[in-house]
Computed example of a mutant assay.
Amino acid sequence: MQRIHRELLDHNDEELELELLEDGHDLDAMFDGHVNDGSEKEERRRYFSELFRLQGELVKLQSWVVKTGAKVVILFEGRDAAGKGGVIKRITQRLNPRVCRVAALPAPNDRERTQWYFQRYVSHLPAAGEIVLFDRSWYNRAGVEQVMGFCNADQYEEFFRTVPEFERMLARSGIQLIKYWFSISDQEQHLRFLSRIHDPLKQWKLSPMDLESRRRWEAYTKAKEIMLERTHIAEAPWWVVQADDKKKARLNCINHLLGQMPYEEVEHPTIELPQRERQEDYSRSPTPPELIVPQVY
């Protein structure tokens, strides 16, 4: 019951995040009527306060990236239901999608399977002044493709020979590459899968591949250990996020990400709203009634 209660709170908090400060809500007032336990209420209030503070820093980082022409790539890897999508959502929530965008590639098509393995990822790399977040990345080959048998032994070994040089090439070209692995326990993934099964709004997150990955937990563990050992390089080290607690994982990841960047606050010119020009011969035409959306609410 405690687990279900926590899941419901987390789901509700996701809906609140985009509204709380934008409409001038008071955090105390929002939580006082919903949570009886004082420690839980304080923990949620602290989460929101820190999240909004860190998102404010992300906005500053965005301005710095644009001003300096920095090129940033951030990879998010981890087991299914580890919370990658949750932290990506919190990073991008208040940023300009023209500056910070997400690359979540589907399975390769028949043509892409004949290309150089890294080719379809290269087209998503950033230009100057851009941040790209990869929701899963070229490390699919070291994880799901290896465990599910979608690549052969030669392709697997070639990946490990190539990926360190590929990432060093990115670094030499001026791209900052940051790699995160979201780590959750066996029990936590089990509970999150059950939550998705019983929540109609989250069932779409479960694919047959996800369910099969649950059965092959130990094979994924071995593949992850090999991947971290063979691809942890000075130019692009791995960082492991302890993710059993979703909210702490989000805050810790964003805080660490900000610490990887030498960003500074960028001064912006004062914005003044210009006066609207008014023409004496201007007359606004009424909107035809048949074009108006019915006001049901």
Rank of each mutant, 00 (worst) to 15 (best):
Lys246Trp: 02
Glu267Gln: 13
Glu57Gly: 00
Asp10Arg: 14
Glu272Ile: 14
Gln203Trp: 02
Leu105Met: 07
Gln260Ala: 12
Gln2Ser: 12
Arg168Lys: 09
Glu264Ala: 11
Val240Lys: 08
Glu57Cys: 09
Pro208Leu: 07
Asp37Ser: 10
Val266Ser: 10
Gly56Ala: 02
Asp28Asn: 11
Gly78Tyr: 11
Asp245Asn: 15
Ala103Cys: 05
Glu218Pro: 02
Ala127Thr: 13
Asn12Phe: 11
Ser123Gly: 13
Leu8Lys: 15
Glu42Ile: 10
Asp210Pro: 00
Arg46Leu: 14
Lys248Cys: 02
Val122Cys: 11
Phe160Ser: 09
Leu257Phe: 05
Val241Pro: 00
Gly129His: 08
Ser207Gly: 08
Ala128Tyr: 02
Pro200Trp: 06
Ala223Cys: 03
Trp239Glu: 07
Val240Glu: 05
Gly174Glu: 06
Met148Tyr: 05
Ile91Asp: 01
Asn152Ala: 07
Ala81Phe: 05
Lys41Gln: 14
Gln279Ile: 00
Arg214Thr: 03
Tyr156Val: 00
Glu130Asp: 06
Gly38Phe: 12
Val240Thr: 14
Asp154Asn: 06
Ile292Phe: 01
Arg120Leu: 12
Gly24Met: 03
Ile178Pro: 11
Glu40Ser: 07
Arg90Phe: 02
Trp64Tyr: 15
Pro286Thr: 03
Asp23Ala: 02
Gln62Ser: 12
Leu58Thr: 03
Ile254Ala: 03
Arg136Gln: 03
Ala128Cys: 10
Gln119Glu: 11
Asn96His: 10
Ile131Leu: 10
Gly38Gln: 14
Gly259Trp: 10
Gly69Glu: 12
Pro164Ile: 04
Ile233Ala: 03
Ala236Phe: 01
Ile88Gly: 08
Glu7Gln: 14
Leu9Val: 08
Glu264Cys: 06
Gln2Thr: 11
Gly174Pro: 07
Asp135Ile: 04
